[in-house]
Design a protein around this nucleic acid. Structure first.
Lengths: 226, 226, 226, 226
DNA sequence: TATGAATGAGAGTTCATTCAT
DNA sequence: GATGAATGAACTCTCATTCAT
């Protein structure tokens, strides 16, 4: 029913299931029904994010998501009005997953910017290399204007985290660079494309490559390896 | 500097094909027929490379190539057994075009590795940003095993050029780094993804961003901006 | 003029249903429940008739009706076993609305048949052109045998009204024609299709066209314009 | 191949097969190939027109046309870029068929406008009642803007024929009316909707009804039956 | 060789209908 | 009774691929 279908803007809210549940604690039946719905939306988004992260956008299809969930394609249209909306929400989910990881890596820390940036990079590379090797495509494909907009928004949130740390390092004199923007973009590019050359088949080798990559990325903010 | 120029063995079959054609110009009927065929193949590859470079792989279609050449789709199957083979050869052509540009940027020079690397980066960024903004997609897509193999080969040829220069700089003491491989991969990633954030619509701004990017990329080999 | 007003027997089952409800108002629980049900049915039919009249049958969807009523599609199936049944009842409702208007246009009048026919045409054209421009589609679509049957029934009721007036005019010598049936069918056709050529966007022009149309329609019963 | 696919504007030309063949007599292979193509287009349009004429627009589907021709749906896309274009061309075909009939009914005649109009009406009713009882829907459904445009164009051609005759009758003093436009629209409406009430199942009765209808339609131009 | 025709698999989308709760 | 979920069939459209000529 379109009457009750969450509008796109609400999707991110829906994902914060705990909070939503808390605020609707008053009514019973509604919250139960809604919780059910949210669960299903969450399952769909999980499947979507997995598909996007592993196959990339160009090979993403409703059919695959439906099959993975063992429902018909039509069912997806109960929750998302079009493939594009689903993709956008899926990207957001994927991004949120990553952001949760990254926030955990830097929060509540009293250490130097260098140490924290190193930890942030480590965490992000772990996620990208091992969990979402195809996520690069999400930032890479252009076409659908709305998707591009969503990606931009996601990037902005992600960027804030890194930029904050880099600014800190600059303020404290730990970092030196020509252009913060350029250094950050190089970092992002290198991180996102790393699954293409890091040898995941050989975990030992891969871990070493990741270590070297981290050291190299730190050079982008003027931190020279010991 | 032939020392750092990509070596012929790393180039493509087709590249060797044309050289072969040149050297066998003596023989009569066969060579004429073959030359005709090669010309057609070359035309197809040109069109394919253009399409790939500007649209990327995901939006690439046989239909568009055929239309651009004013032939039928069916005709393409006389020269390439499948879309995938055509794509692979097209990627190779695109890469070779770029390599020609890059070779020109470093050859016959007696200057320092830093100066030449800067020139190399400048040239590559010009090509990528202005001519082939979608080329990133070619290095990004995964699945078809053969395409991946071909991309790897192309990257190898490209890599030789950069690696030669970096090795020179290391030998001369101009460069400092943790891992040559990591530094190079970061460079490639940053170059390929740059069209996604450099503001091409605003050429003045874009040129400035490219300059900052080059300075930043040099930090990956331990060259600190003045 | 009750003489020319459509007779109750020609009206619909549902019409009879409501009259039944009125007469059984004595009985308790059952009638209350039933009244509730009838109210809901009436609401559904109202919405359906609106949709049919404005969009026509081909663009009619259960979804739209449900949304308009702020209920689910499923709910509609409590009252109508299928889309087709709903449509049939909706057509009937629409027709009855129109009949109410038309009856009002001719009732309690002592004027000549010509004057009353003119008033009848005026009223009908007002309704069709301004309120239900898509109603033509309802009389036009064929296939589903049941719908066709229902449409026939509706047409019969409508026909009685016009035929009565025409018969009067013939009896009084005001009208002259070859075939009452043919003249009437031409009138109905011309009325129903008029929204397709009358320029509703330009109300002044439309009003003039309607006037000319009425004069022309009167020629079908041998009344020549002054 | 889109390169050779006839653009919409050319379709009507393609249908005048004889003329086209005559003008391309110079080249052989081309004309043979093109003739083949035209034949196929003609077959598709025939099937389309039949479907449209018998089922109406709302129940028209590519699938049915393809099945009738025993080809796949995809094949239709070789000749028409979309359903809408096919429909438009089909409507045109249908209209042209009718126009051929109608032109034959009035051409080269020295008789009075009344006689010729009667013959024109007779012919048109024959076509509409017996051959294309569903054609009404084509003039009735609204939505797709382009289709509406095409229908308008078709109507214009058709209108010219009738209007010419009516103007003649007015000039000669045979006809009298209030508004030519209104009289004509009433005629068209009555003709198009006649299949809905004329009893085709009973041919004898139907023929009589048609005769009465013709007499009645002539009243719209002030011709009173004897 | 090259062409145009044709195919068939698959994509996204819509919608009447069914059903467990 | 009413809801929301789910379905399945139908539809338009795309595109790589095959094939007779």
């Amino acid at each position: 029913m379109s009457r009750v279908r969450a509008r796109p803007e609400e999707w991110s809210v829906l994902m914060r299931a705990s909070r939503t549940a808390a605020t609707t604690r008053g009514s019973k039946t509604v919250s139960r029904v809604e919780r059910k719905r949210e669960e299903r939306v969450a399952r769909i988004l999980d499947a979507t994010a997995d598909e996007l992260g592993s196959k990339g956008l160009s090979r993403f299809s409703l059919e695959d998501v439906a099959e993975r969930l063992d429902v018909t394609k039509g069912s997806l249209y109960h929750y998302f009005p079009s493939r594009e909306e689903l993709v956008m929400a899926g990207i957001e989910t994927l991004a949120r997953r990553i952001m949760v990881e990254l926030n955990a890596a830097v929060e509540g820390s009293e250490e130097s910017a260098t140490v924290r940036l190193r930890r942030l990079l480590t965490r992000q590379l772990d996620v990208v290399v091992w969990d979402y090797p195809a996520s690069i495509e999400l930032f890479t494909l252009r076409d659908p204007a709305d998707v591009e907009g969503k990606v931009k928004a996601v990037r902005a949130g992600h960027d804030a985290l890194f930029r904050g740390l880099v600014d800190e390092g600059l303020a404290s004199g730990e970092f030196h660079l020509t252009s913060t923007a350029a250094s950050l973009e190089c970092m992002y590019s290198s991180i996102n494309m790393s699954p293409l050359w890091i040898e995941r088949d050989n975990p030992t080798r891969a871990r070493q490559q990741i270590q070297e990559l981290i050291d190299t990325l730190l050079m982008l903010v003027g931190v020279v390896p010991a």
